[in-house]
Design a protein around this nucleic acid. Structure first.
Lengths: 311, 311
DNA sequence: CCTGGTCTCTGACATGGGTCAGACATCGGG
DNA sequence: CCCGATGTCTGACCCATGTCAGAGACCAGG
């Protein structure tokens, strides 16, 4: 089976047929579709301005801080400033001081800006429609399905797993959402206080590791590894954003955690889990974990798993 | 069935879910993948130069005439000239006069240019590989399949059908390939002389029409409509490039031919066909044609079809 | 040989995207 | 209140892309 293959060979060479298909695909999509897109959508407005207009409008109304725009669009502050002045000159946006911090300035759309943005939006829709329109209904369905598949898989390929400090804001956010989700899923709720505690230091070298999975900078999952107190390494706090499920993020996290465990000389990975987490349990089994007797007194746990590590 | 739906409703509104999917898809593919692409591939070289280098190398060795480059890349002659000088300065291409016509100049890669192009090629491969590599084998297979599907369907959507003069070079090329294909498929070959003749004037208004299907300028199929001598309009010379089959080009041609027939007041479309053309016969049936007794003495025909037109 | 047309090149110019350094206002902490 | 840090803006640049007009070489046909 494919999944067994995957676990066994991990990263086999990409065959040249796949590479060829990706290149053909890319050529078609960017040249044939993209050629129309950017220039067409911005119409008589420079592309940078159009993108900026778009981004300002995307912020929930109340305006967007300029520094956030800079971060999101990755623009030089001087360049951004000039783009803003151009949009101001056309009476599309208004820039004013932030109330919280008067160094920060906030850009918001004017009425004209909002209608202009709606026009861009409509044009974007029209472009998408023009791509689908010549097709027969069955072809359309197939196209939409295939596009969804490509989108999901490309997103999956862009997942990057990297260690991060457990007190990093992104990490904390994941941990909170982890706890919140358990609270709704466990039959008798979840109270962090009752569960066996994991303090940040325990998830930081040398006592452990904390890994974050990101897509394009945004955190979509996490896992913690504890190397103390026993010789076995313990997997904790594994969570994947519901929006990112089905992309294999959990499996990547589970794979990624093996390296530090091995490096620390741990003979095995261990974890405990709740019986309501059926997908997780299935994943552990397919990833080579086997069920073992309880090795701790975690009150929320019903199953205990272990995976021997070879050295 | 889907195809029946298609024939009945023709071009129903594109539902908003499809539009949303296309836009999400486009965003992912261009921003996430494309962002890496162009800039990354050209490395320290301006993009225009890189593309030009590529295109010169794509020509079968012997060089590419500059005017062909201009047409293919759609560049201003002054701009192209300057790009060429830049590449010459880096000793990547050599430009010399054409032998046939000394106004025309021909660009060809130097040895350095060839290796440089190979580097670009390798980089492009590497980019494609990096997209696929993080995926498990089953995910890779799904991605490649879905990309192929998207590519085919987008190509299908880009097919444009338009009338053209039957003596246009592109039209002539199609007609030649049509005849060549019949020669190999018919049980007893195909000799244009033996078949009922169709002179260019017969495929030109007011006696008829000739339609060409193009994808991005390149002809991929054709069909002729004759409005004389009888009141019925006759469909002739329908052909689709083998490389473009399965995209629904034939059906689009068959649909497109109805409008001029109706406009001329024809009560029906007629056609004759050879028994070896099984896909074509299936298409005629599914497009609403019904088999009728022979209405001419075409020596290569085994079946005669007709489709009544409503006015 | 002349003429009109074709092909390429050069120079002049405009614009958009992007970088850099410094000016200036403001903030937060000692 | 001072100081270093932060956020924004301005001015001065650079380069790639693209457009336009005209010059010069060459071609084919009369």
């Amino acid at each position: 089976m494919a999944t067994v293959d995957a676990a066994a060979t991990d990263l086999p060479d990409v065959d040249s047929g796949a590479v060829e298909q990706v290149r053909r695909f890319h050529r078609i999509v960017t040249q044939r579709v993209g050629a129309l897109d950017d220039r067409y959508l911005a119409r008589d407005r420079p592309l940078g301005q159009a993108r900026l207009l778009w981004e300002i409008g995307a912020g929930a109304d109340g305006g967007v801080a300029i520094r956030d725009l800079r971060a999101r669009l990755d623009l030089d502050s001087g360049y951004l400033s000039r783009l803003l002045r151009a949009l101001e000159a056309d009476d599309l946006v208004a820039v004013g001081p932030s109330e919280a911090d008067r160094r920060v300035r906030v850009a918001r759309l004017t009425d004209r800006g909002r209608t202009e943005r709606a026009v861009l939006d409509e044009r974007s829709d029209a472009l998408a429609r023009s791509l689908v329109e010549p097709l027969r209904p069955d072809q359309r369905r197939r196209l939409v399905t295939a596009m969804g598949e490509v989108e999901r898989l490309i997103t999956a390929a862009l997942v990057a797993v990297a260690p991060v400090d457990p007190e990093d804001p992104a990490a904390q956010r994941c941990l909170q959402r982890y706890a919140a989700e358990l609270a709704t899923r466990f039959e008798d709720g979840f109270d962090t206080g009752r569960s066996r505690p994991v303090d940040p230091a325990g998830m930081r070298p040398p006592e452990g590791t904390f890994l974050l999975a990101r897509v394009h900078g945004e955190a979509v999952g996490c896992v913690a590894l504890r190397l103390r107190p026993g010789p076995e390494a313990e997997v904790k706090r594994m969570w994947v954003d519901p929006a990112a499920r089905g992309l294999g993020v959990a499996r990547r996290l589970l794979d990624a955690v093996e390296a530090p465990a091995r490096a620390a000389g741990a003979p095995a990975l261990r974890l405990d889990t709740n019986r309501t987490l059926v997908e997780a349990i299935a994943l552990y089994r397919s990833a080579g974990f086997v069920e073992v007797p309880a090795f701790n007194d975690e009150p929320y746990a019903h199953h205990w798993f272990e995976k021997r590590l070879e050295h």
